[in-house]
Design a protein around this nucleic acid. Structure first.
Lengths: 117, 117
DNA sequence: GGTTATCCCTAGAACTTCTAGGGAGCGCCC
DNA sequence: GGGCGCTCCCTAGAAGTTCTAGGGATAACC
């Protein structure tokens, strides 16, 4: 794993919420999921992942419960709260809007260039 | 103006480079351009803009020259260097790739959800 | 018994952006 | 000629996220 979300800060929380949208999952599997669905384009450091999970929990967007993973390991399962589901919806919309705005800027025609003035 | 790029960190440099891709422009007009082409979705604080310009200059991606604006004000005109033009191309490609990866994650079907294991 | 993979965690550095200021001059209007 | 708004530049410090670089423990496999 190496850095990659540095370029899109503030996106990790959103991706975590999305990963949990189908039901509880533990941190390690969330990271795996992100890497898998993005074709390894986005890679999550554990040093970024766990603090992010703790932040989300503290904000009341997810809830944790200790359990046992399929590999028979102690694992902390996180689940979306009601507020978390709302946040996913809201942040998803915000991100899409901002990302589209950046694309619009990158595709802007010369006719819209900054005023020479 | 209010915050908005907090959500897409690391994007400001890219947008500035893009703004200068048609020729020299001063800081204030770069910010105006970004807000205009994104339909006011992205708004740039001056406290973010000027440090970013100085960073880019220090990295050798842009060059500055004092001049006079169309409004007859003292203004610092920034121009892309050769390295800056390359950086624009590279960072633009990187951003596009990462943004597409996030969209892919947000659109991921349930069949790809994190392993319950 | 050693190795690999899974799973959790933290401290501190690095970096970008925002907040919250400050400053100066031009042009317009009364 | 005084005031006001807009243009244009800048900085210091706070806030926040991510990375680096560790540490730790156990299950499963050879």
């Amino acid at each position: 794993m190496s850095q990659s979300l540095d370029v899109l800060r503030g996106t990790l929380d959103l991706l975590i919420l999305k990963a949990l949208s189908w039901g509880p999952a533990h941190g390690y599997s969330v990271a795996e999921w992100i890497e898998r669905v993005t074709g390894d384009t986005l890679q999550i450091e554990e040093g970024s992942l766990y603090p992010a999970l703790h932040r989300l929990e503290e904000r009341g967007l997810i809830e944790a419960e200790w359990g046992l993973s399929g590999n028979n390991r102690r694992a902390k399962y996180y689940a979306l709260t009601v507020a978390g589901r709302q946040a996913l919806k809201a942040e998803s919309a915000t991100w899409t809007r901002y990302a589209r705005a950046v694309f619009a800027a990158l595709d802007a025609p010369a006719s819209l260039k900054p005023a020479r003035a």
